[in-house]
Amino acid sequence: MTDVVSERRGEVAWIRLNRADRMNAYDQAMADELIHAIRDAADAGVIVITGTDKAFCAGGFLANLQDPDPAELRGMFYNSLRFTDEIRNSPLPVIAAVNGAAAGGGNELVVACDLAIASDRATFGQTGPKVGSAPVLGGTNLLAAQIGEKRAKEVSFLCRRYDAATAAEWGWVNEVVPHDELEDAVTRWADDLLANSPRYLEIAKVSSNLWWNASRDNMLQGLGMLVQAIGSDDMVEGASAFMQKRRPQWPGREPKGSSS
């Protein structure tokens, strides 16, 4: 099975995350495939990233965190930054066609894309502190430029889920459409982009990367902290609790309802 499927529709390159069995969560190898797919689309006019089945992307594959291999996990963390760099450094407009749940690193993928069109079935949110991680590649920094600092902190600290209508109201996405009309709506946006000068679209994109560029050093610092925390009790417990569908018992914090 190919983890990332690429398809050309005229001048539009559709890149589809293709691991429905794990809600399109990515590991290091899948992140590599996404990087290559974006690079291979350099001769298109517009890039669209979407997901297979009911999810857009559930972020990094959490099974990797239960018994982490430090080298593998370090590679996945830094590949996450590399594929978002590919999106931002591509001369082409990149549209997220959010067909379902965008959680954790999947939400940060939406944040990294230039534009985002969402199905009315889509949901958004971060998972980091709830599962033994932190959203340092967009959730704690660039998202604040898109929806405001207080709201971004709410998203990254509390790990709640937000519907598509809320995402549109906050400026998280550009448009929400009925689920069955998502690909048609994205195609219309792509056609509007293709009617404009590719040279000046690139200039506009490079100039609009102001907040991404300002956030990138912070992202690298955050990645460094995540790497140092690989194998920590909090990481293992958070990932284990998520995979086992139970409430985490954080080290040093008494279980809810206990008394001394």
Rank of each mutant, 00 (worst) to 15 (best):
S6I: 08
R8Y: 14
G10D: 11
E11N: 14
V12A: 09
N24Q: 06
Q28Y: 10
M30N: 01
I35H: 05
H36S: 12
I38D: 08
I38H: 02
R39E: 15
G45L: 11
I47E: 01
V48N: 04
G51M: 07
K54P: 05
D69L: 07
P70A: 08
P70F: 09
L81G: 03
T84N: 10
T84R: 15
A97M: 09
V98C: 06
N99F: 01
G100T: 14
A102K: 01
A103Q: 01
E108M: 14
L109T: 06
A112P: 00
L115R: 14
I117S: 02
S119Y: 05
R121T: 14
G125N: 01
G125I: 02
T127K: 09
G128T: 05
V131D: 01
A134T: 12
P135G: 02
V136F: 03
G139H: 04
N141F: 06
A145D: 13
Q146E: 12
I147K: 00
E154V: 07
V155W: 02
F157V: 06
C159D: 03
E169P: 07
V176S: 04
H179L: 03
D191L: 11
A195N: 12
S197A: 11
S207R: 14
S208V: 11
N209I: 03
L210Q: 13
L210F: 14
W211H: 10
R216N: 03
D217V: 02
G222D: 08
G224I: 02
G224L: 04
M225N: 09
G231R: 11
S232V: 13
D233L: 12
D233Y: 05
M235P: 00
V236Y: 09
A241S: 11
K256H: 12
S258D: 13
S260P: 15
